[in-house]
Design a protein around this nucleic acid. Structure first.
Lengths: 124, 124
DNA sequence: TTATCATATGTTCATCTGTTCATATGTATA
DNA sequence: TATACATATGAACAGATGAACATATGATAA
C-alpha cells in the first residue's frame, strides 16, 4: 500500500507515509456509503434556505395554515406553498386539512434538534 | 387586531379569528431576528453539498491534509481546496501548516452533532 | 537561486434554485 | 348550481452555485 515511492526514502519517512496510508484507508472504511452522504446533503440543503428556515421556525410551537404563514412572514401564498411542498417531500412537516384551510406542523423532533444545534453554532 | 372583518361574523367565528391573530402575533414575537435566521440558513447551506459533507465526514476521526482528502474522495485538488475555503469561512474546520502540507480538522463539536442529528433523520 | 511539491485562487460555464405570475384544484356557502 | 375562498401547481426568468481549468502563492530542498 505504502510502497509506491519511486525514490528510495529513508526509513522514518517511509514509516510516516505508511502511517498516512493507514489513516486514509481507515477513514475510507469508516465513511458511510455515498448514497447516504448524498441523502444527508440533500436533507441539509432543505434547511439551507432562509424562507424554509423561517417557515420551520414558525411551526416550532404551533401548527399554522398556509395563509397565516404567508401573512406572518410577509411572503406570497405561492412561494409558501412551493416551499411547503419541499418540506413535505423531505418529511420535515406534516399537514391536516380543516375545511378550506390546510394546517402544517413539524413532522419530527429531529427538525427541532437540528435547527437548535445550528442555532448554537450561529449564536456563539 | 382581530377586527378587520368586513362582514359581521357571529361570535364564535369572531373569537376563532381573534385566537388565530393571537397565535400569529405570538409566533412573530418568538421568531428570532431575520439576520439570525439568514445566518442559520447560510450555515445549513454549507452542509447541503455532498462534496462538503464527505470532506467533513472524513475529518470526523482525524485531521487530514488537502492532498489526502482529494485522494481519499477521488476529487481534484482544486475542488477540495475551494470547498475547504468555504468550510473555513463558516468556522466548521480549522487548519495547521506542517511543512508544505496543510492539515485540516473539525473546528467544533457542533459540526459532529449537527451531522449526527442529520444522520439519524436520514437513516430512519 | 531554481526546481518541485502542496495548496490557494480567479475565471468561465453549465446547471440548479427560488420567486413571480397565471391558472388549476379543492372546499364550503349562498 | 355559481361564487368566493384557500391552497396547489406549471412555466418562465433571474440569480446562485459547483466543477474544471489555468495560474498564482507558499514552502522546502538541491
Amino acid at each position: 500500500m505504502a510502497n509506491k515511492e519511486e525514490k528510495q526514502l529513508d526509513i522514518p519517512e517511509g514509516e510516516f507515509l505508511a502511517a498516512r496510508e493507514d489513516v486514509v484507508k481507515k477513514v475510507l472504511e469508516q465513511q458511510p456509503a455515498d448514497e447516504i452522504l448524498y441523502d444527508l446533503a440533500e436533507l441539509f440543503k432543505v434547511f439551507g434556505d432562509s424562507t424554509r428556515i423561517k417557515i420551520l421556525y414558525s411551526l416550532f410551537e404551533t401548527e399554522l395554515c398556509v395563509y397565516d404563514i404567508a401573512r406572518l412572514l410577509n411572503l406570497s401564498q405561492s412561494s409558501v406553498s412551493h416551499q411547503l411542498r419541499i418540506l413535505k417531500t423531505s418529511k420535515l412537516v406534516k399537514f391536516r386539512r380543516e375545511g378550506k384551510s390546510v394546517f402544517y406542523s413539524l413532522d419530527d423532533e429531529h427538525v427541532r434538534e437540528i435547527i437548535s444545534m445550528g442555532m448554537e453554532h450561529v449564536e456563539e
